[in-house]
Structures are given as C-alpha cells and as structure tokens.
C-alpha cells in the first residue's frame, strides 16, 4: 500500500472557557492510495476534528500537534497559502448537510462551474461544459435543464449529488466524506453509496468516510478505524473488524446493533458514559466502562500492530503489552466472552 496520508501522534485540543478540550489524542494512521477508509465512533469522539485537521480547516481555537504528512509533505510546516493551494488541487470534502455547502441564491450548475474555475484556468464555456459533465456523472437527470435551478428546488439526495459533483471538480486525490448519507433515506443512501464506490473505482480517489452507521462502513470501506473519546483504538480490514472485533469498545459497539440474530433478545448496552473531554481520564479513555480494566489501563495504551493487518490500542492485546515489557494476559478473554453489560 502506497501511503497518501500519514498521521503520526496527532493531537487536537480546543481552547475554551472551562479549560481545553482534548478532542483527538495521539492518533497515528496511514491512508493508502486508492483506498476507502471508514472512521467510526459515537458522537463527539473526534472524527470530524481529525478530518478537519487534515484539511487545515480547524477553528483558530484549535491547536494541532504531531505530524501530518500528505504525499510525504509536512502539512503543519506549510504556510496558509500553500495549504489553500493544496486543498484546491488535491483535497475535497462532502458534509452531512448538503445545504451548508451550497449557496441558496445561485444555480447548482453555476456553483459547480465556479468550483471548476477556482481550480483551473478555463473559459466560461469550458467550465460550463465540465460542470455539466460532472452533474451527469453524479447522476443528475436532465442536467441541462436543471443547471440554473437553485438548490432548494432539489431534494436532499439530489443536493448531495451536486455537492459531490463540486467536490470532484478538481479531481481530488483525497475525498473526505463526513456522514454524507446520514440525512438521506435508505433508498437514496444506497444510490449515493453506489456513486461513491463508482467514483472511487473510476478515479482512484482515496476516500476517508466518516460515519456513525456501521452498516454504511461495512458496505463500502476497505479498512476501518474505530475512535473512542479522541483515541483511535482499533484499525483493521473491514471483514476482519466486523467478523472478529478485538478492542473491547469495538466489540461493545457491534453488539449494541440490532440484527437478525438478536430479535426478541435484549441488546447489549455499554454502561456509563463517554468521558468529558475537557477532563479526560489520563489512561485508556474507555477504562471507566471497560469490564476488563486492569491497573496498567491507567496508562494510555499505544496503538500498535497486533498482527500484519490489524492495529489495536488495548492492554489486553499481547502486542500492546509487549511495548511495556508485560507478559500476555494469562486468560485473555475470547472474542465472544460477555462484555460491558451495564444497567439498562
């Protein structure tokens, strides 16, 4: 896998009134060329913050530390102008709510054409032709006649397609899609996911897909990273993660999902709550809710290669333990041992 993006010990803190919020802590992650990487985790665990750090679009109150490399280039060492240039050339974003990305007063075609012109020096005629081609590519029916329609004339699904057309204008190497289908109906979500997968195939774009719906990730991603309270706790190829989740949080998350096999039975719940990130626990952030907590969990477990395909940050994992010179846990719980059953 050729790396497009390499994050090393990336942390993000937001300065605030009540002290700072540690939104992302020591995340290390590599995104390969041509892959679709899913980032999952519950609300507030730092997914958007991490992707915004990559885009260089965090608010002024945020402080980023660590190393962010894009094609080997150090993003934090670049000037604001250089980053803007690079965003225009290589990166694009699609958000949950297409309304926020589109200007309500202009025609959709014009907005896509403007994005084309922002990236390339082309005539108006050429940018219009390219915009039409992009609108057709994302499946806007009768693109010519809809060219001048303002966004509110389109349904949510169609608006999301327009946003994707604009995001493709610069033929990006990395597309960040933050909950792109969360606001859509399942039927339309399936169409948009098909479109993402097709664009990935055709253009070889690397996609970082943020989603809280594990089903969406299971359907279109190659690899998945699980975040909890600002820490990246497990990274694995999609099939392996879903078939045999190893981090206690990943397991709890999957077992909380309703599924055919669990009809008529109660779902697992994770006792307790996500810690307050303005005063996070100093060690493993899942420790309060983890049934396997040990003394060593008061220290942050590093994210290490558990085997050649999977990375885990948990003191139960032999590879994590080895970094601290600890022997394997005598009776490591099997993946299907009961986990985190809290009050319902």
């Amino acid at each position: 896998m050729t790396a497009l993006v390499e994050l090393q010990d990336v942390s993000v803190d937001y300065a605030g009134h009540g002290g700072s919020v540690s939104a992302v802590q020591n995340v290390s992650l590599t995104l390969g060329e041509n892959e679709t990487f899913g980032l999952v985790g519950e609300s507030g665990c730092g997914k958007t913050t991490l992707s915004m750090a990559l885009m260089g679009l965090l608010p002024a109150s945020a402080r980023v530390t660590g190393q962010l490399l894009f094609r080997g280039q150090d993003l934090l060492a670049m000037s604001e102008a250089e980053r803007r240039q690079q965003r225009g050339d290589e990166l694009s974003m699609v958000f949950q709510d297409p309304a926020t990305s589109l200007d309500p007063t202009f025609g959709i075609g014009y907005q896509v054409a403007e994005t084309v012109r922002a990236h390339r020096r082309v005539s108006r005629g050429e940018s219009k032709a390219r915009a039409l081609a992009l609108l057709r590519e994302v499946g806007i029916p009768a693109a010519e006649s809809r060219y001048a329609d303002p966004p509110h004339r389109l349904s949510g699904g169609m608006r999301q397609r327009v946003v994707m057309a604009a995001a493709l204008a610069n033929d990006p190497s990395l597309l960040l899609a933050d909950e792109p289908t969360t606001a859509l109906d399942v039927t339309i979500q399936a169409q948009v996911l098909d479109l993402l997968a097709e664009l990935q195939r055709k253009h070889g774009t690397t996609i970082l897909l943020i989603a809280h719906d594990l089903g969406v990730v299971a359907q279109i991603c190659d690899r998945v990273g699980v975040m909890y309270a600002g820490q990246l706790v497990e990274v694995a190829p999609v099939a392996e993660l879903f078939a045999a989740p190893r981090h206690p949080y990943t397991r709890a998350l999957l077992e909380a999902l309703p599924s055919r096999g669990r009809r008529g039975r109660s779902l697992r719940v994770i006792g307790g709550q996500v810690p307050d990130l303005s005063d996070p626990p100093s060690g493993c952030r899942f420790a309060d809710r983890c049934p396997h907590r040990m003394d060593v969990c008061a220290t942050v477990p590093p994210l290490v290669d558990s085997d050649s395909r999977r990375r885990i940050a948990c003191w139960l994992d032999p590879a994590t333990r080895a970094t601290a010179g600890l022997p394997p846990v005598p009776a490591a719980p099997t993946p299907d041992a009961p986990i985190a059953v809290g009050p319902s």
């Binding site: 039927t187 399936a190 089903g215 359907q219 099939a239 999902l257």
Partner: peptide, 18 residues
C-alpha cells in the same frame, strides 16, 4: 434491499430503486 447490513459479507442487493 437498501439496508446496509453491518456485515461486509452480506452486501446490499445490486438492484437499486431509481
């Protein structure tokens, strides 16, 4: 058919409602 199952082995049906 449009349900995205949290099971990579069980893909959404290829047939889409247009």
């Amino acid at each position: 058919d449009a349900i995205p199952h949290a099971d990579p082995g069980r893909k959404m049906s290829r047939i889409r409602l247009t």
